[in-house]
Simulated scan of single mutants.
Amino acid sequence: MSSEEYDRTLPRKRVAAGVLFFDPEGRVLLVDPVCKPLWEIPGGAVEWDESPRAGAVREVREELGLEWEPGRLLGVDWRGERPGRSEGLVYVFDGGVLGGDRLAGVRLQAEELGAMEFVAVNRVRERLVERLAVRVEACVRAREQGLTVYMEHGVPV
């Protein structure tokens, strides 16, 4: 079997990239997508032949209107298959602090987002689905410790 033939037998996984932006007080930026009932962090699906880092840059530009250079990788979360969704990998990058001029440069794209708000880390569970809240909390801890965290279903392994 050739390498090309073998490659075609391998599973394909969904890949997404998200970004944690903070305000000067350490609160996390959450966004309200117009197509979903619950809040999320900025980011989305990585496109074909696009790296997770490049996907994060594109999604931030599309959603927030920001030209931005990603910080370090905070975490990778493997999500198993569930009803209606294949398994996937989610990469979370450090967006740094959005304050002053950077925050003034945010332009929510109306077709993508209805609102944004900085939320204290201990309150993200009030806005996010459980799996995303756990992922955000783990990535915030990793940022504080200067680490990168690997997760499965949002739980550090």
Score class of each variant (00 low, 15 high):
E40M: 12
I41D: 01
I41C: 03
I41H: 02
I41Q: 02
G43T: 15
G43K: 12
G44I: 05
A45C: 06
A45N: 13
V46S: 10
W48L: 05
W48N: 05
D49R: 15
E50G: 09
P52W: 06
P52C: 11
R53G: 11
R53W: 04
R53T: 13
A54Q: 10
A54T: 05
A54L: 06
V60A: 04
R61E: 14
R61P: 14
E63K: 13
E63W: 13
G65M: 06
L66E: 13
L66F: 15
L66Q: 12
W68G: 10
P70I: 11
G71H: 09
R72C: 06
L73S: 08
L73K: 11
L74Q: 14
G75H: 01
G75R: 01
V76C: 09
D77V: 09
W78M: 04
W78S: 05
W78H: 13
G80E: 15
R82G: 10
R82M: 06
G84I: 15
G84P: 15
G84A: 10
S86N: 08
E87G: 15
E87N: 10
G88I: 08
G88D: 09
G88M: 04
G88S: 11
L89V: 12
L89Q: 11
V90C: 06
V90W: 09
Y91P: 13
F93V: 08
D94F: 09
D94M: 08
G95F: 06
G96T: 06
G96R: 06
L98G: 00
G99C: 07
G99L: 02
G99Q: 10
D101S: 12
L103S: 07
A104N: 12
A104Y: 10
R107K: 14
R107D: 06
R107I: 03
L108Y: 15
L108D: 05
A110F: 03
A110I: 11
E112K: 12
E112R: 14
E112P: 07
G114Y: 08
G114S: 11
A115R: 13
A115L: 07
A115S: 12
M116P: 06
M116Y: 13
E117R: 15
V119Y: 05
A120R: 12
A120T: 13
V121S: 11
V124K: 02
E126S: 14
E126C: 08
E126V: 05
L128T: 03
L128R: 01
L128A: 02
A133K: 00
V134K: 03
V136D: 00
E137Y: 00
E137N: 04
E137F: 02
C139R: 02
C139E: 01
V140Q: 01
R141M: 00
A142M: 02
A142S: 02
E144V: 00
Q145W: 01
Q145P: 00
Q145E: 14
Q145A: 09
L147V: 00
L147H: 00
T148S: 08
T148G: 04
V149G: 01
V149I: 01
Y150I: 08
Y150D: 09
Y150P: 04
E152D: 03
H153N: 07
H153A: 09
H153M: 06
G154T: 01
V155W: 05
P156N: 02
V157F: 09
V157N: 05
V157R: 12
V157W: 08
